[in-house]
């Protein structure tokens, strides 16, 4: 029963996320509402970590595999892909480097300034 209860909680929260999604009608995926609901339940200790521990860890481990079918879906979008290959390459290499440098430098600046203020 242990695993069944854990599955029920996690899928129940996923369902609750879909309900919120329907009601709010915002362009935010249902899974994000589910995540926020689960976060609230855990922080308020309505659900304890132990109650979802095993299935939760399993889900986190298999997450990336759930993307296999949608990644294979790229075969249906090859023609579309060809039309903006160069912007994609720029986004992949240049933008990733820019984001990393800007994030790192800005947060380092904030952290070091706060530390010097504390002294």
């Amino acid at each position: 029963m242990k695993y069944l209860n854990q599955i029920a909680i996690i899928f129940g929260v996923s369902f609750a996320g879909e309900i919120v999604y329907r009601f709010l009608g915002l362009p935010i995926p249902a899974s994000i509402y589910g995540l926020i609901i689960m976060m609230i339940l855990l922080e308020t200790k309505i659900i304890k970590f132990e109650q979802i521990k095993d299935v939760g860890s399993f889900m986190l481990n298999i997450m990336i595999v759930t993307f296999v079918p949608s990644t294979v879906g790229v075969m249906t979008a090859v023609e579309e892909l060809k039309t903006f290959l160069i912007p994609i390459l720029i986004v992949l290499f240049l933008v990733t480097v820019i984001v990393m440098v800007v994030t790192g430098r800005v947060s380092q600046f904030v952290i070091e300034r706060r530390c010097s203020k504390d002294e």
């Binding site: 996690i10 899928f11 929260v13 996923s14 996320g17 879909e18 995926p29 249902a30 899974s31 994000i32 589910g34 995540l35 926020i36 609901i37 689960m38 976060m39 855990l42 922080e43 970590f49 979802i52 939760g56 860890s57 889900m59 986190l60 298999i62 997450m63 595999v65 759930t66 993307f67 296999v68 079918p69 949608s70 294979v72």
Partner: peptide, 21 residues
């Protein structure tokens, strides 16, 4: 394959666990 994709939502919900920890 789509049945595998169905697991994405509950997997995303479980992202709450590392945040909680």
């Amino acid at each position: 394959g789509q049945y595998l994709t169905y697991f994405l939502t509950p997997c995303t919900v479980c992202y709450a666990i590392p945040l909680h920890q």
